[in-house]
């Protein structure tokens, strides 16, 4: 009887799990995901995006009330903003990405807003947003609006520092996998990476070149700290191996001691 009860609870739990996920996603996704075309596509694009990975759902950007299962969820009274006009996109994204918006607005890109200049979505896309990297600067995309030359220079100027950032990020992830607390380093690297990517939004090659040394010096400092930790971990490995060898030696000596007592007893 008790077994049946437990099985019943397990089945109920399994049935309720997808409902819980469903409820977390809110009414926006429940209604839009099954729809064809432009109404449903954003949901599929959003899945797997950096926003979804960090718990930012539809209402995080578009407003509205995802707890309501009616059209009122999309009423302005519920804070619904809908999709912004092209020229309003920087303010739309800038509600969260404050620093990036500031640099973008002061740049050649930002100053050309409304006159054919690009806004956030032009380069980053709107729903399938990924963690930004230098691959966003490429001849195909930049040549849609202007010659690639200057953009290529900017990419070259940023490449070395970006490579160092990615290498350090990979190193920290590896350290985390072996149980080392790396939150502080990850926070510092995130802040540095964010500042560095903000620099890109100025689209000013000379500014990037001027500030590269400062970024690389900070990265070198962090690399030294990580190298120090690596050296300590290596030292610990050797000490661990030494302890194992000493324990084996101690057990051997114990065996010999025991044998010695046994032999003396036999001879007497």
């Amino acid at each position: 009887m008790r077994r049946m009860g437990l099985a019943g609870l397990l089945i109920l739990g399994l049935l309720a799990a997808p409902l819980a996920v469903w409820a977390d996603e809110g009414s926006c996704i429940q209604c839009h995901a099954p729809q064809p075309g432009a109404l449903g596509e954003p949901v599929a694009l959003w899945r797997g995006s950096v926003h979804q990975g960090n718990g930012i759902s539809c209402h995080g950007c578009h407003g509205g009330d995802p707890t309501l299962m009616s059209m009122e969820a999309m009423s302005p009274e519920r804070g619904f903003l809908g999709a912004p006009e092209d020229s309003a996109v920087p303010s739309f994204c800038g509600r969260c990405h404050v620093g990036v918006e500031e640099d973008y607005r002061a740049s050649a890109h930002g100053l050309a807003l409304g006159e054919g200049g690009p806004q956030c979505v032009t380069c980053h896309g709107s729903h399938a947003v990924r963690v930004a990297g230098l691959d966003l600067i490429n001849p195909q995309d930049c040549s849609r609006c202007h010659d690639y030359g200057r953009a290529g220079e900017l990419r070259t100027a940023m490449e070395q520092t970006e490579t160092l950032i990615l290498a350090l990020d990979a190193e920290l992830k590896q350290l985390r996998r072996i149980g080392i607390a790396v939150e502080d380093w990850q926070g510092r690297l995130f802040a540095l990476r964010n500042d560095f990517h903000r620099l890109f939004h100025s689209v000013d090659v000379d500014k990037v070149r001027r500030q590269t040394d400062t970024f690389q010096a900070k990265l070198a400092g962090m690399q030294d700290e990580v190298a120090e930790l690596r050296a300590e971990l290596n030292q610990r490995k050797w000490i661990g191996a030494g302890v194992v060898i000493l324990l084996l030696a101690a057990s051997g000596l114990f065996a010999l001691l025991r044998q010695s007592y046994g032999r003396q007893e036999n001879t007497e």
């Binding site: 000493l246 324990l247 030696a249 000596l253 114990f254 001691l257 010695s260």
Partner: peptide
């Protein structure tokens, strides 16, 4: 046995 005990004590101290 004195030799073995001395060696064991040394290893014990290091550990």
């Amino acid at each position: 046995r004195a030799l073995l005990a001395t060696l064991l004590a040394g290893i014990g101290a290091v550990l």
